[in-house]
Design a protein around this nucleic acid. Sequence first.
DNA 1: TTACCTGTATTATGATTAATAATACAAATG
DNA 2: CATTTGTATTATTAATCATAATACAGGTAA
Lengths: 129, 129
Amino acid sequence: MRIALDMTSEEPIYLQLRNEIVLGIGSGRLAAGDGLPSVRQLADDLGINAMTVNKTYGLLKDQGFIEIDRRQGARVRVDSTQEPHFPTLWQKQLTLLMAEGLARGMTRDEFLATFEGVFEQLNQGGRIG
Amino acid sequence: MRIALDMTSEEPIYLQLRNEIVLGIGSGRLAAGDGLPSVRQLADDLGINAMTVNKTYGLLKDQGFIEIDRRQGARVRVDSTQEPHFPTLWQKQLTLLMAEGLARGMTRDEFLATFEGVFEQLNQGGRIG
DNA sequence: TTACCTGTATTATGATTAATAATACAAATG
DNA sequence: CATTTGTATTATTAATCATAATACAGGTAA
């Protein structure tokens, strides 16, 4: 899976990496059970420190997206669903995002159109099989 | 307008404040042309430093949500729309958010329902007149 | 067993950011 | 002329980010 990091961004590297992996899972490019590279391997590929990757993996584990097995490494969880207050947080983020859109003058139709477009995009990203 | 800050949050105060104001604008509780409190006034009310409020106002100005007039203070912009690469950024954020939802097992219908709910909530928040 | 590769913990360092505090200043209002 | 606006400056404290160099426990495979 291709991962692009912006070293000039003010967004921390470990967060960028976390987001890229979540995007991979959400789009299906990373399927449940798929293994992730080892922290050293991925750090080498991306040209960053292994502890930074480790921080990302720890975060993804805490957030329930992956599970970590000694020796086997990190794998995408089969049931990423069970996070207690996820719905509340998610809705809060959506509220802020939509408020920003409304403040910019977006209409309900524009919301729906963008929504549909993103959904399509994510659904096409998956693998066949 | 009521503003609640969480001093224990890891989200910076100036960002929390920025988000609260954007929520105010998006929901219509703050209408175009409305004046915001002075930096010192708001800082006093919230029990934070005036320079922190100033940082928030500067950010909101840079992002096109408010305009700042010496002596008159800060006012909500009438045309918050004209920000060049806003649509791209907005879509990127929505993509990440929806990917997170998909990874959690959310369905298309759940997306739409939540979306409608948040839209309603924001539209009811506005003022009459 | 031995050698290797997992994630992880530790300690240190340098750079940046967040928040506060105490002033000070230009500009506009009353 | 006194007041209030946003803003700039300087300093300080605390926290975060990223790196580096190791080291360790625990599985795996030669």
